[in-house]
């Protein structure tokens, strides 16, 4: 069928020619897809504002030989506005979009769980109910878990010995017991390990009560875990404050 209609989250845009853009979207049914949006950089464009990153849209595309072309767009939730008005939300949100684009590598392959996770994450971020960094850390851990890199913060990642343990190894997949601990493993406190587990499971009561020092240490471990399993570093992550 040449015309496809789907819900989508805009991941990024690239300039094309004089006034067009290539829009990369994570769609509900088709996974990651790219489409040309013609004339959207002109100020008179009727749907240029709807095809900005972070926008949750209902989009209709015409399937071409190489790239699809956007023919209609309706806004479902204009998440770009609250996120872009706050620089901390913007940097955290951009890292979430970059992560989604990296994890869902193949185009036109359904990634429904990743779609719902990203949508939920961006809505939580825009709602400002929790700190941007905590929302980002929780998103990173959960998106990696869906992709098959689920970390463990209680049992030992290598031998399964019950925890909590006070050693963390990104290559081995999280907490490690004293017997399995490899050289160079981090040594976080029990509180940090419990915070990491809360971020993974979405226990926001525990996350919001954590002290700043533990939050920073947990963020560092999440960043190390993410960068290791994504294989290439996230360009936007160092800009998150």
């Amino acid at each position: 069928m040449p015309v496809a209609r789907d819900e989508a989250i805009v991941l990024r845009t690239n300039k094309l020619g004089e006034a067009d853009r290539i829009v990369t979207m994570l769609t509900h049914r088709r996974g990651k897809t790219r489409a040309v949006a013609k004339g959207v950089r002109r100020t008179a464009s009727r749907y240029g504002a709807r095809l900005e990153p972070f926008m949750h849209i209902d989009v209709q595309t015409f399937q071409g030989r190489t790239l699809d072309t956007v023919t209609q767009v309706e806004t479902i939730d204009a998440l770009a506005r609250p996120i872009c008005d706050d620089y901390d939300l913007y940097t955290a949100g951009t890292t979430m979009l970059e992560t989604a684009s990296r994890i869902v590598a193949a185009e036109d392959e359904p990634a429904v769980q990743q779609y719902w996770l990203l949508l939920g994450g961006l809505k939580t971020l825009a709602g400002k109910a929790h700190t941007p960094r905590a929302v980002l850390d929780s998103y990173l851990l959960r998106s990696l878990a869906i992709a098959g890199y689920a970390p463990t913060f209680t049992e030992c990642a290598r031998c399964g010995a019950p925890g909590p343990h006070q050693a963390f190894s990104a290559p081995w997949g999280g907490a490690v017991c004293p017997q399995c601990r490899p050289p160079g493993a981090a040594a976080p406190s029990i509180e940090v390990m419990l915070l990491l587990a809360a971020l993974l499971t979405g226990d926001w009561a525990t996350v919001d009560q954590a002290i700043v020092r533990d939050q920073r240490e947990a963020s560092g471990l999440v960043a190390a875990f993410s960068q290791y399993h994504l294989e290439r570093s996230l360009r936007s992550l160092p800009m998150v404050e």
Binding site: E52, P53, F54, A80, C84, D85, D86, Y87, Y90
Partner: peptide, 13 residues
């Protein structure tokens, strides 16, 4: 656009 608005938010801060 998104980048311009975020840059403005950063500068305002």
């Amino acid at each position: 656009n998104v980048e311009g608005e975020a840059t403005a938010a950063y500068l305002a801060r």
